[in-house]
């Protein structure tokens, strides 16, 4: 017999909403937090698009509330990271960083996504020494200094605008000749006199790895190939996210960019394994959609554990996919 009916991996809005719903369904869920407990909202300040809070709510406060709400209905929350999962047999097993192994009849994956790096070597080497992927965390250290933001999306503009509070000048380096960011964010960024743009360019190198601090960036114009060195003290990378799916590679189906493929709601290629939030969503990536998909995963897991058929999501009434009954799965 498995240790648990449901284990949830991840503690962002998707994981905690899945916990809330499975707890209320009396499934006594165990949620494993992961290293980045609370998820990406822990690194944001004011969240202004979470419905129900007309004046906004601070990201960390929202996550603290979600956590307490999930716990109130009986979610057990475990600190720590998952090192390995085995989804090849039933029950599934989950190995923790501290050596513990837990088994579960159903698994909800809500491991989210993490900031992408440039992967030019020097960016990783200078991480925490002038290169950062989190303006709200590290912006403070660049008070009175010139810095760069890499990227052209909404989060790049948000970071650039936020960083003008501290930096003397923010240089935005973007690969294209126009921004991908929404109109409202573009307008805000263009109106800010501390922000300067370098178009059609990427970063060839961040110096100075030898000294262990950022002294300049080498910007490469993608049209002319010309390289220019710009002296500055910090680099903030905001070029999107990559899903945290390394744990599951080779065991469940991923798309070509590494996101978990889901069908019929939150179902993955392995019956009994469900996915919610940014780990399976490269389109919406909002706190509220993550929470919504966490709810879906909880309901799907509940149906699976009850041995109920997978509901048909097509309109032409194609044959229902039927999940194998639990007593079949659990036979030794």
């Amino acid at each position: 017999m498995a240790d648990r009916k449901v284990i949830i991996i991840g503690s962002g809005p998707a994981g905690l909403t899945a916990a809330l719903y499975t707890a209320r369904a009396n499934l006594k869920p165990l949620l494993i937090e992961g290293l980045e407990a609370g998820g990406q909202l822990m690194l944001t300040t004011m969240v202004e698009n979470w419905p129900g809070f007309r004046d906004g709510i601070m990201g960390p406060d929202l996550m603290a509330e979600m956590r307490l709400q999930a716990e109130r209905f009986g979610t057990e929350i475990l600190q720590g990271n998952v090192n390995r999962v085995d989804l090849k047999g039933y029950p599934f097993s989950v190995a923790m960083g501290d050596g513990r192994t837990l088994t579960s009849d159903a698994l909800i994956i809500a491991t989210g996504a993490s900031a992408r790096w440039l992967e030019i070597g020097s960016d990783r080497k200078l991480s925490g020494h002038g290169v950062s992927t989190c303006a709200t965390c590290d912006g403070y250290f660049f008070r009175g200094k010139p810095i760069a933001v890499i990227g052209g999306g909404d989060s790049a503009m948000e970071e650039a605008i936020y960083l003008t509070r501290f930096a003397t000048k923010v240089t935005v380096v973007h690969r294209r000749d126009s921004l991908r960011a929404s109109k409202i964010m573009q307008d805000k960024a263009f109106a800010n006199s501390k922000i300067e743009f370098i178009w059609d360019s990427d970063i060839a190198e961040i110096r100075d790895v030898g000294k262990g601090e950022v002294s300049s960036i080498v910007v490469r114009n993608l049209k002319t190939g010309k390289q220019t060195e710009i002296p500055l003290d910090g680099v903030f990378i905001a070029i999107g996210h990559t899903p945290n799916t390394d744990l599951f590679r080779g065991q469940i189906e991923l798309d070509e960019t590494g996101y978990i493929k889901t069908h019929h709601g939150s179902r993955t290629s392995v019956p009994g394994v469900f996915a919610a939030g940014d780990v399976q969503d490269h389109i919406y990536r909002q706190a509220v959609t993550a929470a919504g998909s966490g709810c879906m995963a909880a309901i799907d897991a509940e149906r699976y554990l009850d041995g109920l058929p997978v509901p048909d999501e097509t309109t032409d009434n194609a044959a229902c996919l039927v999940a194998p009954p639990m007593n079949e799965i659990l036979k030794p």
């Binding site: 991480s127 925490g128 020494h129 002038g130 950062s132 965390c137 590290d138 250290f141 601090e213 950022v214 910090g234």
Partner: peptide, 12 residues
């Protein structure tokens, strides 16, 4: 103190 130890990121 963060300045003295050249801290550029948290947590350190």
């Amino acid at each position: 103190i963060p300045g003295r130890f050249m801290i550029r990121g948290i947590p350190t």
